[in-house]
Design a protein around this nucleic acid. Sequence first.
DNA 1: GGCAGCGCTAAGCGCTCGCTCACCGTCGGC
DNA 2: GCCGACGGTGAGCGAGCGCTTAGCGCTGCC
Lengths: 213, 213
Amino acid sequence: MSTAEETTGGEVEPWEEVTPDAARRLLVAAVEAFAERGYHATTTRDIAGRAGMSPAALYIHYKTKEELLHRISRIGHDKALDILRTAARREGSAAERLADAVGSFVRWHAGRRTTARVVQYELDALGPEARAEIVALRRQVDAEVRGIIEDGVASGEFDVPDVHGTTLAVLSLCIDVARWFTVNGPRTPEEVGALYADLVLRMVGAGQASHGS
Amino acid sequence: MSTAEETTGGEVEPWEEVTPDAARRLLVAAVEAFAERGYHATTTRDIAGRAGMSPAALYIHYKTKEELLHRISRIGHDKALDILRTAARREGSAAERLADAVGSFVRWHAGRRTTARVVQYELDALGPEARAEIVALRRQVDAEVRGIIEDGVASGEFDVPDVHGTTLAVLSLCIDVARWFTVNGPRTPEEVGALYADLVLRMVGAGQASHGS
DNA sequence: GGCAGCGCTAAGCGCTCGCTCACCGTCGGC
DNA sequence: GCCGACGGTGAGCGAGCGCTTAGCGCTGCC
């Protein structure tokens, strides 16, 4: 009960790849501030204050405020893509893999809501070249989900008239969890993940076929 | 072909209820600026510039920059609620009414994307009392959709284990259209509306039952 | 045709922003 | 035991912010 970090169920503490300890504290503070107020409404003084440092300390570890956002967005997208890839490349039917992908993707968006919020909604605050890098990652995310749906259509498990549109809708549904989910709400990330996995299976015409866990 | 205003298919020009002409021009300029850059990243000088006026002119018609956002948000939510109410209270089966609600709600979010973006994503920039007013409107939006789904469950048309969760997901799906939709994309608002209406019917267990227009 | 009222502008106030710079304490290497 | 390197601070720079104010020109009324 130190900082309530076990909501994802998976790893205990992310951002471990951010190596100087002070840099990590600043980055975690920035994630919280950006998620609460948005990038533009967050001041560098606020970030430094949350990390227990002076405003100038920020510029020892990061060149600009935007670099902080870029690092957060990059690491977050890598994590999101990793989650989807793991689900997409496991063994099992297309329905099982799609349910797994949606379930774990949604659990991440709900459990790591502050991170997901920054990652999904502050893209426009990045400069052109940083945004281009992130957009490329998003295309890989899209391709991963589309691949599962195409597999299900090919095997006859799914009935999907518009694969691209349905892929878009599935991802849209998952991403928007970061907007509305709150820890004070009636649902746990696990419950939302299970509900959404079921809804998505229905969307691809494989509904109610959720046999087993 | 003056400003491309016929994308919604419905009325020709919104914001007609904003009465002094200069006030309406400022408000339309603010909608565009807020949608492009976000509320906090938009300056009053930018808004006034887009409306072809000096920065001081803004304060003749609006007390603060936040009042502009409040007015936009209020009018937009009223419109969104009106769209859903019209669909919910027409005659027809629950499936027809749900498809109509989702279709028209999505068409609005896609066709009036700039407005919808501000309305749906800049809520946190409002002060406490203004936000409370808007949150109350959102609850009515939620109740309208939930009502249709409950009707369908009661009549046996729908098979929905979690009515509240499914309502949330349906609205979430529609709202997120404002985030990803772009006029340069491959789909028209009408096409997205039709696709989403079909997907939502599948989500409630009334899929492929789209007989007739 | 003078004038009150109003919509609007030019200029600028006070403030806070992102970011910089001169300086300082601590700590490992010799 | 001194010393360079490095992580950190206090103070503050220039710029741009939201918003105000003094005044100007147009327009309608008598």
